[in-house]
Measured scan of single mutants.
Amino acid sequence: MTYKLISNGKTLKGETTTEAVDAATAEKVFKQYANDNGVDGEWTYDDATKTFTVTE
């Protein structure tokens, strides 16, 4: 399945996607992506749209 990340960081804003077997796997990928880009904030997940959002 395709999962989307919306980043509302102070230094990184935008969207990216990943293919993953489940939401937990996608979350690990996205949290590593955010960490690699210096984004640390509040996370939410919408199962209906398969979208994670991180806001700093």
Rank of each mutant, 00 (worst) to 15 (best):
L12S: 08
T17N: 05
E19P: 04
Y45R: 01
T53I: 08
K10C: 14
G38A: 06
A26N: 01
E42A: 10
E19F: 15
T11N: 12
D22N: 09
A23Q: 11
N37A: 10
D46E: 06
E27C: 15
Y33G: 00
M1Y: 15
D47E: 14
K31I: 06
G14V: 15
G9S: 13
K10D: 08
A20L: 02
D46P: 00
N37Y: 11
T55P: 01
L5F: 08
K50W: 05
K31F: 05
W43H: 00
F52K: 00
T18F: 11
E56P: 10
V39E: 03
V21E: 11
Q32F: 05
E56C: 08
A24Y: 10
D22L: 03
A20F: 04
G9Y: 07
T51S: 04
Y33K: 03
L5K: 01
L5D: 02
S7W: 15
E19G: 05
G9D: 04
F52C: 00
D40L: 13
I6N: 04
M1E: 12
K28M: 12
E56I: 12
Y45A: 00
G9H: 11
T44G: 06
N35V: 13
D46Q: 04
A26W: 01
T11G: 11
A26T: 00
K31W: 06
Y3L: 02
E56S: 09
T18S: 04
V54C: 04
E56Y: 10
G14C: 15
T11M: 12
E27S: 06
N35I: 15
F52N: 00
T25K: 05
K13I: 12
M1T: 14
D36K: 10
F52E: 00
T51H: 01
K10G: 11
K13V: 11
T44A: 10
V21T: 12
T16H: 14
T16C: 15
W43I: 03
K50P: 00
K13A: 10
D47L: 06
N35W: 14
D47T: 07
G14I: 15
W43P: 00
N35S: 14
T44S: 13
E56D: 09
Y33I: 09
Y45T: 00
D40E: 13
T18G: 03
A34S: 05
I6Y: 06
G38M: 06
D36M: 11
T49S: 09
A26D: 00
D22P: 01
K10M: 11
T51M: 03
K10L: 13
T49C: 04
S7Q: 08
G38Q: 06
G38I: 04
A24V: 10
N35Q: 14
T16V: 14
Q32I: 09
G41D: 01
T53E: 05
G41C: 03
F30K: 00
A24D: 09
G38S: 06
A20Q: 07
K10Q: 10
K13T: 11
E27L: 15
K13D: 06
D22I: 02
G41H: 02
D47R: 07
V29R: 09
E27N: 05
W43E: 01
N35F: 15
T11F: 13
L12E: 06
V29N: 06
V54K: 01
N37Q: 10
N37F: 10
T2I: 14
K13F: 11
A23D: 04
N8H: 12
G41W: 05
T44E: 10
T51N: 01
A20C: 09
S7C: 15
V29S: 05
K28I: 11
E42I: 14
D22Y: 03
T44M: 08
E15D: 06
G9M: 12
E27W: 15
K13N: 10
M1F: 15
Q32S: 08
E19K: 13
T18D: 02
N8L: 14
M1S: 13
E42P: 04
T55H: 09
T51Y: 02
D47P: 14
Y3A: 02
Q32E: 08
K4V: 11
L12G: 10
E15A: 08
T17R: 08
Y33S: 02
G41A: 03
D36W: 07
Q32G: 06
A24S: 09
N35T: 13
T18H: 06
V39T: 05
A24N: 08
T49L: 07
L5P: 03
M1V: 13
D36Y: 07
D36A: 12
A20H: 02
D47K: 08
T51W: 02
T53M: 09
E19L: 14
D22E: 04
D36N: 09
L12K: 08
T53C: 08
T16M: 15
T18L: 13
T55N: 09
E56A: 09
I6H: 05
N8E: 08
T11R: 10
F30N: 00
K4S: 06
A34L: 11
K31P: 00
L12A: 06
V39N: 03
G9A: 13
E15F: 13
T17L: 10
A24C: 13
E42N: 09
V29Y: 15
E15W: 14
F30L: 05
D22W: 02
L5M: 07
Y45K: 01
V29A: 08
D47M: 09
D36E: 13
F52R: 00
G14M: 14
E42H: 12
A48E: 12
L12F: 15
G41Q: 03
L5W: 04
V21G: 08
Y3D: 02
Q32T: 08
D36L: 12
T51E: 03
F52L: 00
F30W: 01
G41M: 03
A34N: 02
D40M: 14
G38N: 09
K31T: 04
F30M: 02
A26L: 01
Q32P: 01
V54Y: 04
K50S: 05
E15T: 13
V54G: 00
T16F: 15
A24H: 09
D46H: 05
E56L: 10
T53D: 01
M1I: 14
D40S: 13
Y3Q: 02
M1R: 12
T16E: 05
T49W: 03
T2S: 07
F52M: 00
L12T: 07
Y45V: 00
Y3M: 02
E27F: 15
K28N: 07
N35G: 09
T17F: 14
T53K: 06
A20I: 02
E19I: 15
K13P: 11
V21W: 12
K4W: 13
D46S: 05
G41L: 04
E27P: 00
E42L: 12
F52H: 00
K31Y: 05
K28Y: 09
G9N: 08
E42S: 10
E19R: 14
Y45M: 00
D47Y: 07
K50C: 05
V39W: 14
K10Y: 10
K10V: 12
G9C: 15
D36F: 09
T55A: 06
K4I: 12
K31R: 15
K31D: 00
K31N: 03
D36I: 10
E19M: 14
D22H: 03
E27V: 05
E56M: 10
L12M: 11
K13Y: 11
I6M: 07
A23C: 13
T16R: 12
K28E: 08
A24T: 09
K13C: 15
Y45N: 00
L5H: 01
E19Q: 14
N8I: 15
L12V: 09
L5Q: 01
V54S: 01
T53F: 11
A23P: 08
A34M: 11
Y3K: 02
A20W: 02
G14R: 13
I6W: 05
G14T: 14
K28T: 08
W43A: 00
A24R: 10
T53P: 00
A23G: 04
A23Y: 12
T53S: 07
D40G: 08
T51V: 06
N8G: 05
T18E: 03
Y45G: 00
D47F: 07
K10N: 10
M1K: 12
K13W: 11
Y3H: 03
G14Q: 13
T11Y: 13
K50T: 03
N35D: 10
I6F: 07
A26E: 01
